[in-house]
Amino acid sequence: MESAAIEARALRKTYVTTRGVLRRTRVERIALRGVDLAIRRGELFGLLGPNGAGKTTMVKIFTTLLLPSSGSAAILGLDAVKDPWAIRKRIGFVFGGERGLYWRLSGLDNLRYFADLYRIPPQISRRRIAELLDRLGLAGRERDKVEHYSRGMKQRLHLARGLLNDPEVLFLDEPTIGLDPVGARELRLIVRELADTGTTIFLTTHYMFEADAICDRIAVIKNGSIVAEGTPSSIKGVVENQGVVEFEVVGMPADRLVGLRGLPGVSSVVVSEHDLAQVVTVQCARPADVMTQLGMVLGGLTLSKVSSREPTLEDAYVQLIGESL
């Protein structure tokens, strides 16, 4: 049987730091609390979670940059702890943001440099770099210094670098962070195409629609533990038989919120600030009932933009993470 592309068993990571000058105290921070995951070859897998949930830690362990405290991680059947060199040749990774490139060099020089560091023979790397520049829409600008690139171009250059060694598994850590909507969509299209040509992709993001749009399978991570795993539609099943009522209000008192939460069928109420008003999102079993009772619970307050809709992946996510966005 062919091994999984990525496999984690009871993966734990604890960071230990020391604080203070005279009296040094050890501070432990648990980033991963026993994660089990298996990702098949050719899958586009999305890891969703808020900042600090452990997404980047997991990616770093898989890319051999970080050792787990306990448990095991295997990439293409190779142990990420004992076999980093074999793994490094066969994977690629891209971390989001603008850093990680030599700004004073051209895009082409960046790629040539990393091609050599990936120990790709020159006759292959030359062809490969030309292909990637073309495919990622950088052809024609490859001799410009990276500092003159737009953010989207830098991110595509990152991706080109990550693809230099024609990786079997590609890790993308929040690749669309800071990109404008058009740039982000272009990048998502490219990622989807890559997955369709057989590359296994492990993507972390905190954009729900991104995961919903392109991932075959999703896991949601919270405080270092996986709290849900499945296809986007099965994750939405968490909030199945539920609807969402949304409205805007100015100056929502806390006691009214309690009243709202007490209504029959209401599973969560999330308030988010929006300019001067608050947007209240109520997840509930029977939206129509809740809408008729709103006036009773919130009498005296002026509600606007009251609506009811089908649950989205974001609603499921909010339910799972259990925090206001």
Partner: peptide, 18 residues
């Protein structure tokens, strides 16, 4: 500062060679 230290560390070329 560049964020490239992590990347040259993760390539299949040993750091000492670089």
């Amino acid at each position: 500062w560049n964020g490239t230290l992590e990347q040259i560390f993760a390539v299949p070329t040993p750091l000492v060679v670089i």
